[in-house]
């Protein structure tokens, strides 16, 4: 059963210039993005900065209004609502079902509120009675591995990892049906990052969460996700089950991304050359496949015709003209 069905999701930002603020161009932050997340599944959205992964996440949370496309979400089993056209007021009763885990554990907690109040706020604004709120806050603190005494302390008394736990507790307070995690561990130290990844794994297991996991770190993604969608300049270029994607990438960009990750093994140095060039400008993407200027396998067709995301076998989808003929190196 699908919890979230995103189809044709597009977000453009107009570029205005001149005294009349005339539109002179558009940043195509997200272009025709399609994916689904089923119940209990974690889909990772990966890519480099500016690829549109955060834009997609913010559209799903409806912190942004998409330019076009639909975001169908299931607020209760057997029901589907399209979030894309809804107004702020229509969205309010639905917000409780989709919650966000922030990247920055420092900015995301109000420093002037006690931890107990921070975690209780979602319950309070959704009309949960005081006694029940208290019980639930203690339950949530325990769930994320913080002592009950944390309730009466202020965020400044906590380390980055502990703050991230508080943020997770707040996100879980209303038993959301979908969690959006926006780079939840990238601001943390390596040793603390591992703690939070393990906590997320525990929670996935215990609560059967459906998660959209936005990240740039392929190592982290490998540990937490069931499926991975790779984005490049606003479009999804490959979607595949995690193991398959890492073992047999079908898009040259996926391969480039993986080979660029420095391997924590001094005996495996420089196995692949770094991809050439830089990420294309989403305001002015190259014609054809956006990756063609950097792609070692590009042919004339790649420079003129944009490849569509299609099934290339074994449940893998890739947007590459040459997906079938290329043999790309994966890891593990």
């Amino acid at each position: 059963m699908n919890m979230l069905e995103v189809s044709g999701l597009t977000k453009h930002y107009p570029i205005n210039a001149g005294i009349l603020r005339r539109e002179v161009g558009r940043v195509r932050a997200a272009e025709d993005v399609n994916f689904t997340i089923s119940k209990g599944e974690t889909l990772a959205l990966v890519g480099e900065s500016g690829c549109g992964k955060t834009t997609v996440a913010r559209c799903i949370l409806r912190a942004l209004k998409p330019t076009s496309g639909s975001i169908r979400f299931s607020p209760a089993d057997g029901e589907m609502v399209d979030l894309a056209p809804l107004s702020k007021r229509q969205l309010r009763p639905l917000r409780r079902h989709i919650q966000l885990i922030f990247q920055d554990p420092y900015a995301s907690l109000n420093p002037r509120m006690m931890v107990g109040d921070i975690i209780a706020e979602p319950l309070l604004v959704n009309g949960v009675a005081s006694a029940e709120r208290h019980r639930r806050v203690l339950e949530l603190l325990d769930l994320v591995g913080l002592p009950a005494a944390a309730r009466t302390r202020f965020p400044h008394a906590f380390s980055g990892g502990q703050r991230q736990r508080i943020g997770i507790a707040r996100a879980l307070a209303l038993n959301p049906r979908v969690i959006v995690a926006d780079e939840p561990v990238s601001a943390l130290d390596v040793s603390v990052q591992a703690q939070i990844i393990n906590l997320l794994l525990d929670l996935q297991e215990q609560l059967g969460l459906s998660t959209l996991f936005v990240a740039h770190d392929l190592g982290v993604v490998r540990h937490v996700s069931d499926r991975v969608a790779v984005m490049y300049v606003g479009r999804i270029v490959e979607v595949a089950p995690t193991v398959a994607l890492y073992a047999t990438p079908r898009h040259p960009y996926t391969q480039a991304l993986m080979s660029a990750v420095p391997k924590a093994d001094p005996l495996m140095r420089d196995t692949a050359a770094a991809p050439i060039g830089e990420v294309a400008d989403p305001a002015n993407p190259p014609p054809g496949c956006a990756f063609n200027p950097r792609c070692p396998f590009a042919i004339d067709r790649c420079r003129t015709e944009r490849p569509v995301l299609r099934d290339v076998g074994a449940g893998q989808l890739a947007a590459c003209h040459r997906a079938e003929e290329l043999t790309l190196a994966g890891v593990g």
């Binding site: 380390s159 980055g160 990892g161 502990q162 130290d189 390596v190 040793s191 603390v192 990052q193 591992a194 703690q195 990844i197 393990n198 794994l201 996935q204 297991e205 770190d217 392929l218 190592g219 982290v220 490998r222 540990h223 937490v224 996700s225 069931d226 995690t242 193991v243 890492y246 993986m258 990750v261 391997k263 924590a264 890891v331 593990g332």
Partner: peptide, 25 residues
């Protein structure tokens, strides 16, 4: 030792847990 074990691995089996160092710096 702990630091090396806590690095996410591109070859790890899916949903595998990481070794951690307790507490924070």
């Amino acid at each position: 030792q702990a630091l090396l074990r806590s690095v996410p691995n591109l070859r790890a089996p899916p949903h595998s847990r990481l070794a951690t160092i307790g507490g924070a710096v």
